[in-house]
């Protein structure tokens, strides 16, 4: 039976090749390098965008892949940020050690909170993720002799590997440093997603009920991905404060949890590059709005509210989904 054989071959080919890199995946990295050389004046903004991409990617792991809704991801971002800053003010100013410690600290928090929180679902889970984050924010405000409260604390990083200084003036080495960390984080997440573990996460998102019925300990697997996601969010938080040399209790802000979720939705969930697109568009629009219309009126807030409503109603797959649809139409026309 020739047709059967060919459909089997097609299926095998699909399974065996889908993890391979597509040439289009080089685009964001080429753009990032072009920005560095040709738009040096925007390096600070670009650095912030790169950090937010890492943060949004970490959220995509749980929201987009494993189907866990969280409005409290700043719990891990903030914890990573404070661990790094407090290490630096306590004579451990090495940025790399700071990153690793942030990842571990956030992972431990992710394990403790995930183990108990993930027993619940839906609204209860949502409320609990918010409650944990707000609790941490309250604690950070109450212990302001340690955290510096709203004014924050300043710190200095030592040179990376004792060689490269993280400059806070031209953001040249800082930008490259953050870009490299983003690249490594991205490779890590991409590998996981195309590995059996990632396929399993998608299964949980699609149908947790059936996953349990095929022998998957769903809660345990959700805790694992929650911990991984927390660690990466912790790294993002650490980078955020390292490049500024300053940390305030703002890193625990509930609004930031909302912002990063919006970036992800705007770009598109469960598709890796949605985080890139969403964070970039969000931060650029925010910047443009504030420069053109000023910050004395909440134009930006209004715009983002409207965009969110429209996205949910008309473009649930995000900007990335819109691009995909346009691309498909263009292909059809070509044929």
């Amino acid at each position: 039976m020739v047709p059967n054989h060919s459909s089997a071959a097609k299926a095998v080919n699909y399974l065996q090749t889908r993890h391979r890199f597509h040439w289009g995946e080089a685009i964001p990295w080429i753009l990032a390098i072009l920005v560095f050389y040709f738009l040096p004046g925007y390096r600070l903004l670009a650095t912030q965008i790169l950090v937010m991409i890492i943060f949004a990617l970490s959220l995509d792991l749980i929201v987009g892949y494993a189907g866990i809704i969280s409005l409290g991801h700043t719990a891990f971002f903030g914890t990573g940020a404070y661990i790094t800053a407090l290490l630096a003010t306590n004579n451990i100013p090495d940025p790399i050690i700071g990153l690793i410690a942030a990842a571990f600290g956030a992972a431990i928090l992710g394990f403790l909170s995930g183990w108990v929180l993930l027993r619940t679902t839906g609204l209860t889970l949502l409320v609990l993720t918010m409650a944990v984050t707000i609790m941490l924010a309250e604690l950070a405000n109450d212990f302001d002799e340690i955290t510096g409260g709203f004014d924050g604390i300043n710190f200095t990083n030592s040179d990376i590997f004792g060689l490269i200084e993280l400059d806070q003036l031209w953001y040249s080495s800082s930008y490259i440093y953050v870009l490299i960390v983003l690249f490594l984080s991205f490779l890590f997440i991409r590998t996981i997603i195309y590995a059996p573990f990632g396929r399993m996460l998608i299964g949980i998102r699609e149908n947790p009920r059936r996953m349990s019925a095929i022998g998957t300990p769903v809660h345990q697997r959700q805790v694992i991905v929650y911990v991984v996601s927390a660690a990466i969010a912790g790294i993002a938080g650490a980078l955020w404060v390292q490049v500024q040399g300053n940390v305030t209790t703002e890193v625990y802000a509930f609004e930031l949890s909302g912002d990063v979720l919006i970036m992800l939705i705007l770009g598109g969930t469960g598709r890796l590059y949605g985080a890139f697109l969403g964070a970039t568009v969000f931060k650029i629009l925010e910047n443009v709005t504030e420069q053109v219309l000023g910050t004395d009126q909440p134009y930006w807030q209004f715009a983002i509210g409207l965009v969110l409503i429209l996205t949910v109603l008309f473009a649930r797959r995000g900007l990335f989904g819109i691009f995909e649809d346009l691309g498909n139409k263009w292909k059809e026309r070509g044929q």
């Binding site: 979720l261 209004f302 983002i304 509210g305 965009v307 969110l308 409503i309 996205t311």
Partner: peptide, 9 residues
């Protein structure tokens, strides 16, 4: 998401 959008607006 939709209702958060409403809150912002």
């Amino acid at each position: 998401l939709l209702t958060i959008g409403l809150v912002f607006a």
